[in-house]
Design a protein around this nucleic acid. Sequence first.
DNA 1: CGGTATCCCTATTGATACTG
DNA 2: CAGTATCAATAGGGATACCG
Lengths: 113, 113
Amino acid sequence: MKSISRANCPIRRTTDILSDQWSFLIVREFFLEGRKRRFQDLQTELGLSPNTLSNRLKRLEHSGILERRQYSDHPPRAEYHLTAKGEKLGPVMQALYDWGMQYPDTGQASEND
Amino acid sequence: MKSISRANCPIRRTTDILSDQWSFLIVREFFLEGRKRRFQDLQTELGLSPNTLSNRLKRLEHSGILERRQYSDHPPRAEYHLTAKGEKLGPVMQALYDWGMQYPDTGQASEND
DNA sequence: CGGTATCCCTATTGATACTG
DNA sequence: CAGTATCAATAGGGATACCG
């Protein structure tokens, strides 16, 4: 685990994409709730505003982690799913999960769902 | 890997602490550059402003990931080091690193160091 | 050296209303 | 349903100057 340049460090490349208030949690929904998620699902599950969600989704799509698939026009229905690249985030999510499980007292979130 | 409440999800607890522009990268320095880092080291290595660094450092300290140790007053010298809890972030850092290594094209950082 | 104190700017977010 | 548009609030961050 040794990087050459800080700007091009693999950890930095990863966190540049995912390290904000929502991205990890959005990806989390795919691992926890199912491989296909719809806009409304995610919004309800996470409780963020549609513009913010739209924004993150586009970024994740652009980064090749999610893929959008529209399968109906008239009642507009689209679903997002993890790409192979997105699936490979499994170990990352697992590691975040494991650490969080070891320290249940950490953090300040207290509201239910 | 199944959580009960979203607000109290282990992943969320972890990302609540670490998921911002700098925290992962600060922790990264301890894994990559050495277990003890000083304020100036980190600032130079990462290129962030002192107030921002100070802020993150306090948060990481408060979260029990880093510990501050002042070992001189007159020429003021302090060093930060990972706690046991901080060391346990190893798998997280490794996973972030591994994913980043698999997808070297991802991200947009292009400047050198 | 190891920070704090200011000032300021911009990106992110939320709330809300609206559209195809 | 799946978003986009708009507006306002605020937190994050940079630059800089300063202090013990």
